[in-house]
Amino acid sequence: MHPTWQEVQELTQQFRNIKTEYWLSENVFTLSWWILSVTSLCLLIVWIIILDKKRIMEIITYGFFVGTIAILADIAGFWLGLWQYPITITPLHLPIEIHRLQMPIIYMLFYQYFKTWKAFTIAAMVNAFVFSFLLEPLLVWLQIYEPYHWKYTYSFIAYFVIAIVMKWLINKFKHMDQNYQ
Rank of each mutant, 00 (worst) to 15 (best):
M1W: 04
H2N: 13
H2G: 03
P3L: 10
T4K: 12
W5K: 15
Q6V: 14
E7H: 09
V8D: 05
E10D: 13
E10R: 07
Q13P: 02
Q14C: 05
R16D: 05
N17M: 13
K19Q: 13
T20D: 03
W23H: 13
S25C: 06
E26K: 10
V28Y: 00
V28M: 04
F29D: 11
F29L: 11
S32W: 00
S32P: 02
W33P: 11
W34D: 01
L36H: 00
V38W: 04
L41P: 06
C42L: 15
V46M: 06
W47L: 04
W47T: 03
I48T: 05
I49K: 08
I49F: 13
K54E: 10
I56V: 13
M57I: 11
E58R: 07
I60R: 08
T61K: 02
T61F: 02
G63R: 00
F64C: 12
F65W: 08
F65Y: 11
V66D: 04
V66E: 02
T68M: 10
T68C: 11
T68V: 04
A70V: 01
L72M: 12
A73D: 01
A73P: 00
D74A: 03
D74L: 01
I75R: 05
G77R: 00
F78R: 01
L80G: 03
L80A: 06
G81I: 07
W83K: 02
Q84C: 01
Y85D: 00
P86M: 09
P86E: 06
T88A: 14
T90R: 01
T90H: 05
T90Q: 04
P91R: 08
L92C: 14
L94D: 00
L94W: 05
L94N: 05
I96D: 06
E97M: 00
E97H: 00
I98K: 00
H99V: 05
R100P: 14
L101A: 04
Q102W: 04
Q102N: 15
P104E: 12
M108L: 15
L109K: 05
L109G: 03
F110K: 12
Y111G: 01
Y111R: 02
Q112T: 11
Y113A: 09
Y113Q: 13
F114E: 08
K115A: 12
A119G: 09
A119F: 03
A119S: 15
T121G: 14
I122T: 08
F129C: 03
V130L: 15
S132M: 02
F133T: 07
L135R: 01
E136Y: 02
E136A: 08
P137Q: 04
P137R: 08
L138A: 15
W141F: 11
Q143N: 12
E146N: 11
E146L: 12
H149E: 07
H149C: 04
H149F: 14
W150T: 07
K151E: 13
Y152E: 11
T153H: 03
T153Q: 08
Y154E: 06
Y159E: 00
Y159F: 14
F160G: 08
V161P: 07
V161C: 09
V161M: 10
V161K: 10
I162M: 15
I162Q: 05
A163H: 01
V165I: 13
V165P: 01
K167M: 06
K167F: 02
W168P: 00
K172S: 09
K172W: 11
F173Q: 10
K174E: 13
H175P: 04
M176N: 15
M176Y: 15
D177P: 05
Q178H: 14
N179C: 13
N179G: 12
Y180G: 14
Q181E: 13
